[in-house]
């Protein structure tokens, strides 16, 4: 099908909040009939781990809504990041927002292609066995092979 629309995404971030946009947009585009490819590079590779340990932090992020005002130095205390992650996950669950794992599975069911940046894998000595099944490994040229034909390309 040559008239099928294509969406290419570069996912560069490895926090819980920023793991959402690539998987939400990828799965939705696939549901709309798009051919989708997501290229995960640098910290974005955390989103492909079998065992996701994604966290959120309010540090350096004054836009994050807080249940109560809190000085930045307090936010930096040990355990605060884990607490905020737990609170964020509970909030998402209560609002019916899917988990990252669920959206990732829905992407895979819809045949969204996941490409892991080989250079980053080597750079950080990551173990390819830590990634979920179905991940392909490639470089910038492989991304452009798809993105060059894409109708939409997003850098997240």
């Amino acid at each position: 099908m040559s008239d099928q629309k294509k969406l290419a995404i570069i996912a560069t971030k490895g926090t819980l909040d920023w793991a959402y946009p690539p998987f939400i947009l990828g799965s939705t585009a696939a549901a709309l009939g798009y051919d989708v490819e997501i290229f995960f590079t640098f910290y974005g590779l955390q989103c492909l781990k079998k065992n996701l340990k994604l966290q959120v932090t309010s540090l350096g992020n004054p836009g994050m809504p807080m249940p109560m005002p809190m000085p930045v130095l307090l936010q930096a205390l040990p355990g605060m990041q884990a607490m905020m992650t737990t609170m964020m996950k509970a909030k998402m669950k209560s609002k019916g927002v899917a988990s990252v794992e669920e959206l990732r599975e829905l992407c895979q069911e819809a045949e969204v292609r996941f490409i892991a940046c080989q250079m980053t894998v080597d750079l950080f000595d990551m173990n390819p066995n830590d990634f979920i099944d179905g991940v392909e490994f490639g470089g910038a040229a492989m991304f452009f092979e798809f993105a060059g034909e894409a109708d939409i390309t997003l850098y997240i």
Binding site: I24, S27, T28, G96, A98, L106
Partner: peptide
């Protein structure tokens, strides 16, 4: 019911 974006669309699809 109770599901948020994009789940209703994905389930419907």
């Amino acid at each position: 019911s109770g599901l948020n974006c994009p789940l209703p669309i994905l389930r419907a699809k």
